[in-house]
C-alpha cells in the first residue's frame, strides 16, 4: 500500500508541474495585467512596482524562480496546527499578492482557506447525512411509495442547482421568516443555510448511488445466506450489504469533494462568506498573478490528495481490488 501511495504521489509531480506551467504562462500571454486597471502612475512608481514583483526579469527566470519558491523545502506538519502557514510547515512560498501589496498569498490562504474548508466539511456531512439514509430507505423499500418519495427527492436535489436553491432558501427562511441571517459568516447559525444549499446536490447524487449500489448487492447469494441464517433485516443491511453497496458512493466522494470545492465559489458569493473560493474568482478578475497561481495550485493539490485517499479507501473496502 505504501508503494502504491508513493507511486501515485510521484505521478502527481508532473501533473502539478503541468498545472503550474499552464496557469503561469496563460496569465502572462493574455493582454492586460494586474496594474492596467489602476490610475495612471508615474514611471518611477511603475518601475518600483515592477522591480518589487520581479517583472523586469526575463520570463523564463521569473518562471524558474517561482518554481523554486514553490518547492517544498522542509517538512514540519506540526506547524500547521498553529495556523495554515505553508511557509513554516513546508517552506512553500506563494509570494506577495499583486492586489493587496502588503499581504502575501500565504497569509491570504491562511486567512481564507479555513472558512472554505469549514463550509466544505459541513456540506459534505450534510450530503452524507441526508443522502445515505434516503438511499438506504429507498433500496430497502424498493418500488413502494417510500422508494418513489426518496427517489423524487433525490431528483429534485439534482435538478435545482445551488444558485437557484440558495437564493430561494434565503428568501424563505431569512427574509420572510427572519430565522437566519441572509448573509455573513459569524455564529453557528450562519452555517446552516450555506451548508444545506451546497450539501443538498451531493446528497441527491449520494442517495441515488446508495440505492443503486445496495440494490445490486441485496440480490446476491451471500445476502440470501445471511437471511437464511436468520440475521435480522437491520443486520443484513448494515452489517452485510452496506460494505459492498457503498463502493459506488466511495468512488463518488472524489469528484464530490472537487465539486464541493468549486461549488463554494457560488455559495460564498450568494451568502457573502469570506472564503477562498470568492477570493479566487476575484483574483482572476483582478489578474492577481500570484494569488491565482497560489489558489489553483492549492485546489489541485487538495483534489489530487483526496482522490488518492478515496482510491486507498476503495481498495481497503473491496478485497477484489488490488493496489496497482
Amino acid at each position: 500500500m505504501l508503494r502504491f501511495i508513493g507511486r501515485r504521489l510521484l505521478e502527481a509531480i508532473p501533473v502539478m508541474l503541468v498545472i503550474v506551467t499552464g496557469t503561469f504562462f496563460m496569465q502572462r500571454f493574455v493582454p492586460g495585467g494586474p496594474f492596467t486597471a489602476e490610475k495612471a502612475v508615474t514611471p518611477e512608481v511603475m518601475h518600483n512596482l515592477e522591480a518589487y514583483y520581479h517583472l523586469n526579469d526575463p520570463l523564463w527566470k521569473q518562471y524558474t524562480d517561482y518554481l523554486w519558491d514553490l518547492c517544498p523545502k522542509r517538512f514540519h506538519p506540526g506547524e500547521l496546527a498553529k495556523g495554515l502557514d505553508f511557509k513554516a510547515a513546508f517552506g512553500v512560498d506563494f509570494r506577495p499578492s499583486f492586489k493587496y501589496p502588503n499581504r502575501t498569498v500565504n497569509e491570504i490562504i491562511a486567512d481564507k482557506l479555513p472558512v472554505s474548508l469549514e463550509l466544505g466539511g459541513w456540506s459534505l456531512l450534510v450530503a452524507l447525512g441526508l443522502g445515505l439514509p434516503l438511499g438506504i430507505l429507498a433500496a430497502v423499500r424498493r418500488n413502494t411509495w417510500v422508494d418513489y418519495l426518496c427517489s423524487s427527492l433525490a431528483m429534485t436535489g439534482i435538478c435545482v442547482p445551488t444558485f437557484v436553491l440558495g437564493p430561494i432558501l434565503v428568501l424563505a427562511f431569512a427574509i420572510h421568516t427572519g430565522w437566519f441571517n441572509a448573509s455573513g459568516w459569524y455564529g453557528p447559525i450562519d452555517r446552516v443555510l450555506p451548508c444545506l444549499t451546497l450539501g443538498n446536490v451531493y446528497a441527491a447524487y449520494i442517495a441515488r448511488l446508495t440505492r443503486g449500489g445496495l440494490l445490486e448487492v441485496l440480490n446476491q447469494d451471500y445476502i440470501r445466506t445471511a437471511r437464511a441464517k436468520g440475521a435480522s433485516e437491520l443486520r443484513v443491511v448494515f452489517r452485510h450489504a452496506l460494505r459492498g453497496g457503498l463502493l459506488p458512493v466511495v468512488s463518488f466522494l472524489g469528484p464530490a469533494t472537487a465539486g464541493i470545492l468549486t461549488g463554494s465559489f457560488v455559495i460564498e458569493t450568494i451568502f457573502q462568506i469570506p472564503g477562498l473560493g470568492r477570493e479566487f474568482v476575484n483574483s482572476a478578475f483582478n489578474r492577481d498573478y500570484t494569488l491565482v497561481l497560489g489558489t489553483v495550485i492549492l485546489y489541485a493539490a487538495m483534489i489530487i490528495i483526496l482522490n488518492l485517499a478515496v482510491d486507498v479507501v476503495q481498495v481497503l473496502m473491496n478485497p477484489r481490488h488490488k493496489f496497482e
Binding site: 501533473v15 498545472i19 496557469t23 472537487a258 470545492l261 468549486t262 491565482v292 489553483v296 483534489i303
Partner: peptide
Amino acid sequence: YALPFTIFVIL
C-alpha cells in the same frame, strides 16, 4: 478527471 477543471474554465 482528477483536475479542478471548473477552475480552468473560469480562468
